[in-house]
């Protein structure tokens, strides 16, 4: 079980890094467009369109990492009232709901992606990009997030068993500068 947890956590970590790298790509793209437009009165033609796709990629591929790092926010009112085992179990119920939602999310976005594959949907911009390519990141992000919810659930089980050695349990604490 611990192996599964750590593997999923690692995959989400890769997702987080990918998101960061894609964001750096978007930065380079935007700066290149500004430079070419300002100094050479030219254009890259695709800067606007592709920074849109990159935004979708950055968002979706980083969702799981954000969950792992306790980046997604929630109202902690109830959780703060609960203590010990009850708190863990309550959190696991929330995680299970999140897990189920993410399965649905993956399914819906998967259908959406497949629709674009089947119809060979293209953008109406100069690049005529097949939209299925960027849209593939919707279900992919969904899968990563589903897995991360699973990992968190398993971590809950480990906590209940009092056996968390070798696991990195992230706490929702007042950590500055997140």
């Amino acid at each position: 079980m611990k192996k599964i947890i750590n593997t999923i956590d690692a995959i989400s970590g890769i997702g987080g890094w990918t998101s960061g790298i894609l964001m750096t790509g978007a930065l380079v793209l935007a700066l290149a467009e500004i430079a070419i437009r300002t100094f050479f009165s030219g254009t890259l033609y695709i800067a606007d369109e592709y920074s849109g796709y990159l935004m979708a990629l950055v968002t979706l591929i980083g969702l799981a990492y954000t969950l792992r790092e306790r980046g997604h926010i929630r109202m902690m009112f109830l959780v703060h009232i609960l203590k010990g085992r009850t708190k863990t179990i309550y959190n696991m119920i929330c995680l299970a709901i999140g897990f189920l939602f993410c399965i649905a999310f993956t399914w819906f976005t998967g259908e959406f992606f497949w629709d674009s594959v089947v119809n060979e949907t293209q953008s109406m911009q100069l690049s005529e990009t097949y939209l299925a390519l960027p849209q593939a990141f919707l279900p992919l992000g969904g899968i990563l997030l589903t897995l991360q919810f699973l990992s968190e659930l398993l971590k809950g089980v480990a906590v209940l068993r009092n056996d968390t050695e070798g696991l990195h349990i992230y706490e929702e604490v007042d950590e500055l500068g997140r």
Partner: peptide, 26 residues
């Protein structure tokens, strides 16, 4: 509702104007 969900996800993430958010946060 699932098709609408997927559509909303795509329409709200795939715009270049959205990119301002991560940039300024960065």
């Amino acid at each position: 509702f699932g098709s609408i969900l997927a559509n909303i996800v795509w329409n709200n993430t795939s715009g270049s104007a959205m990119m301002a958010l991560p940039f300024f946060i960065w």
